[in-house]
Amino acid sequence: MIKFENVSKRFGSIKALEDISFEISEGEFVFLTGPSGAGKTTILKLILKELLPTDGKISVDNQDINKIRGKKICEHRRRIGVVFQDFKLLTDRTVFENVSLPLEIKKIPLNQIKKEVEETLTAVGLWERRDLFPVQLAGGELQRTSLARAIISKPKILLADEPTGNLDPKTSWQLIELIKNENLKGITIIMATHNVKIVDSLKERVIELQDGKIVRDQKKASYEGAKVEDKTPEEKSQKELKKVKKEK
């Protein structure tokens, strides 16, 4: 589904990514880990074609995205949902209007937009908050709005750039469960994160980066590379949630 072949990205003299190659299959859940500046966000931006690689080839759905131009870039982005760490919501639009944006862009009829926004906002528990503006929401609600906007158009790929970075542990777990549910529906998830507990509990594939290089690409892995207990992600997340509640 997503293939990086010898991809490098330089910003002037700074090497953000250096000759990295990996492949992600359809429906996979992949964590991108590593310290700040390791190149996690750069990978997400390259997949979204927000940045262009300096060298190498990136394919999404067997399409070389370096070669797509103009309208094709928009069509490519419409197939990808993105959850940003800083939410990137439109401040002058309500929750409803923010979430309906990808459907409006696709010129979906208004009655269908209303129906789908209601379904999605209900799924993320924000239907009651639909008429509020971002400034009136709490951090977790903002991130759930961002997730709702990312999943409403039923993308094939969901990119999440440190989605729990600004959230408390309980809210982080609620969000992760929503993202995991999307993965269970068959959406490919690529999540950049620093959250050790989440990575350790979900036991998914981990691509660890350091100084722009892949230092580890391991399936069913933990954050630090240690062996993870063979539990299902649901069991693990429930366990973590209980632990968080106890700590509080």
């Binding site: 927000e50 928009c74 993105v82 990137k88 944006l101 990808p102 696709k106």
Partner: peptide, 15 residues
């Protein structure tokens, strides 16, 4: 910033 967000969620230039 708003325009950048619109572009990232797939809006074309005419939108």
């Amino acid at each position: 910033e708003e325009i950048e967000i619109l572009a990232l969620v797939g809006a074309n230039k005419w939108y």
